[in-house]
Each structure stands twice: as C-alpha cells, then as structure tokens.
Write a protein that binds this DNA or RNA. Structure first.
Lengths: 196, 196
DNA sequence: CCAGTCATGTAAGATGTTACATGATTCC
DNA sequence: GGAATCATGTAACATCTTACATGACTGG
C-alpha cells in the first residue's frame, strides 16, 4: 500500500516515465522507500488502471518508438490527501540487528566486533546520504523539489521545503542513534573480553 | 531467513511447544522480531525436517492427546553460530513515517499534527516495553533468560545478560530518537502554521 | 560501431498478513 | 458448566526479492 503512495507522491511533482521513476527510487525517494523495477512498472500500470495516473505516449527517437509518460490525475491527488489524513498503521517490529545482538554470546567476540563495525559503517553511509540530500534541498539542486516548487503557491513554498528537510533530518537522527548504539556495543565488548 | 534464526535462538534456551514459542513471540523476542502463528508453526516443522530441531510428543491431559515439544539439535546450535558469524545483510530502506512526513504539505496541518502525536505515542509505548524488558533482565524475572542462564557456564553468564540488555537498550535509543524527531516536527508545525 | 544509458518488463520464489477454523484442557 | 487458556494450524492474498531478458537510442 505504501509503494502506491510513494509513486503518487513522486509523480505529484510532474509527469515522468517509468524509467525516470525508477531512477528517483534509486536515489532521493529511494532513501525513504526502496522499490525495484519489477515492482515499479507493474504498479504504475495498476495505478493507471485505477484512474490515479494518466499515461501519454511520447515519441522517442526517429522511428515510431514511444515511451510512456505517467502523470497524476485529480483522483490521484485526492488519494495523496487521503493518505496524509490516515493514521500511520505501524507495522510489527522486525529488527535483525537487535535480534542478532541479543545473542552475541553465542558467536565469538571477533564476529560480534565485525558486525558492530559493519553496523557503524552502514549507518555512517546512511547519514552521509541523508545529509547530502539535505544539502541538495538547501541549495536548490534537488531536481524533484525544484520541479515541485515551480507549481506550488508561494504560501506553500516554505512548508514544502521544510517537510522534506524534516524527513531527511529524521534519517540522520536514526543513523546517529544506530552509530551511538553500536559504539556502546564495542565498548561493551572491550569490557567483557578484555584489553587485547 | 531471519525467522529461522529467531526461532533457533529462542529454542536454544530450552525445549518448548509451538504454543510456547508463539507466546514468546508475542512478548520478549517479539519486540525484536514479530511473527504470527501462521508463520511459526510451519517454520518449526521445516526446521525439524532440516534436522535443526528435534521433536518429542508430550502427553497432554488424560486422553491420549499429545503436544509437540521442539528442542534444538547440535546442528541447530551450529546454525546459530554461523548466523552470528555472518555479516548482517542490511535490507533496503522502507520508512513509511519519513515518507509521509516528506509530503505533509499535501495534507492539512491538523492531520500532520495528529500523525506526529501518534508517532510519539507509539514510540513512547515502544520505549516503555523495552524498558520493562530491561527491568525483567535486571531483576531476573525474564523466564527465557533465567532458563538460559541455568545451562550456561559461569564465564558466559555476564555476557549473556549484557548482550540481551544491550539489544533492548538499542530499542530504547531508537524509540527516543523517534520521539525527539516527532517533537521537532510539532515545533515545525507551530512555526509554519502559527500560534493558534 | 560500440559503450552507456534509456526503456520496459516477466517468472519464480520467499516472506508476511489476514481471516478463518477447530477442538482439548484446566480451573473456578 | 463455562470462560480462559492451550494447542495447532489452513487458505488466500499481498508484498518483495532475485534472476533473467530484450532491445532501442545517443554520443563519441
């Protein structure tokens, strides 16, 4: 259900081909919601069949080849508003890192350390990506946001930017919490298994 | 793949029926990895068919009715060690809360506020549950941990407790990061939509 | 003309959700 | 005798992953 919303939200900034959509899902939106091509293309067609998206065949190259451009309909916009009004529907917890950590005494200290260092590296990377996105937002080099701002009333401009920034700040917060936790874990390993 | 590991880890503290397993998944382990009955029972049988678990039919009541008790095999224990040695395999990001937040200007401020308050309430509850679990660990009233400690050498005792505590501390950290983020969101709403 | 990008998927399988289903046992 | 708990699932569906597949266009 959320992929739909991610697609509609993305397309609310303007028309795009499936390929464009897929690319955004590999970067900007993709940091918030990942999806692969094999999910994206079928879902776009489904959304069209439900009247939430319109398609237009765009000529591509010299021969009669075309590509399909999707644009959001009024019904689609309505769907986004509905989504924003709905409560979140939190999904049950599934936390592989904590699960593994809870049983680290069953492996060896070296593996535990390696896993914690991996954890730190992973979330340092995540933080970097989120910060990069924030920089793009601030500097006006986020293609999607720029495009969106063109069709937004001046009164909504500030909020549009602020909420996007707020979302990626949340990603930074999460990454930092993960890093702090894993670092405490490394300290714990030291305490338990001594000063090598 | 992780459900298997959660099941094996749980059963490494001692034999249990599917029903017992399901109950633990509704509380302690369940805070780290959720699974429903319809997943648990079939997966237990699969693990048995792979030789990672053994079964024993236990008489139940007066008639010839039995229940099935699962216990971990040496192969199962080996599997846990393997799991601990493997790197984590981070899954792609799928973050409904941040996704929604990124497009909050498309709803109304009231919905945004309601969603952020929900977020806070949800994670305050999560924090509470994690803290309760930490208390059970500290006070020796966690049934699973107690059972596990009985069969653990003294030298591993400290680590066994410490890692479990560490895992749930991580949950507390996450919950607190979420709460801080959502509170900043409420402040942002105030700034954007004024002092009502 | 060849590499890189643009464009669009299918198929099989794993994983997880939701709803439904059934009956025994235990304790008061 | 009846409620709560113990015990064990099936079926249908939704979602997501992985591997594979194909071909046109563009720029050097």
């Amino acid at each position: 259900m959320t992929l739909r919303n991610a697609l509609l939200a993305l397309l609310s900034s303007g028309p795009m081909t499936g390929y464009d959509v897929a690319k955004r899902f590999a970067s900007s939106v993709g940091f918030l919601w990942h999806a692969s091509n094999s999910q994206i293309y079928p879902e776009l067609r489904k959304l069209e069949s439900e009247g939430l998206l319109d398609t237009q065949e765009i000529p591509w190259g010299t021969k009669g080849v075309t590509k399909t451009e999707y644009s959001i309909t009024d019904l689609g916009m309505e769907e986004i508003r509905k989504w924003q009004q709905e409560p979140m529907g939190y999904t049950p917890d599934r936390d592989p890192a904590r699960l593994k950590a809870a049983y680290m005494e069953m492996g060896n200290p070296q593996s535990a350390e390696a896993n914690l260092r991996d954890h730190i590296a992973h979330f340092e990377d995540q933080r970097l990506r989120a910060e990069a996105e924030i920089n793009r937002i601030d500097s006006g080099t986020s293609p999607n946001l720029t495009r969106r701002l063109e069709k937004v009333q001046d009164s909504d401009r500030e909020a549009t930017i602020a909420f996007k920034r707020f979302a990626y700040e949340g990603r930074v917060d999460q990454a930092e919490a993960e890093i702090r936790w894993a670092k405490r874990g490394l300290k714990l390993l030291e305490e338990l298994y001594g000063e090598k």
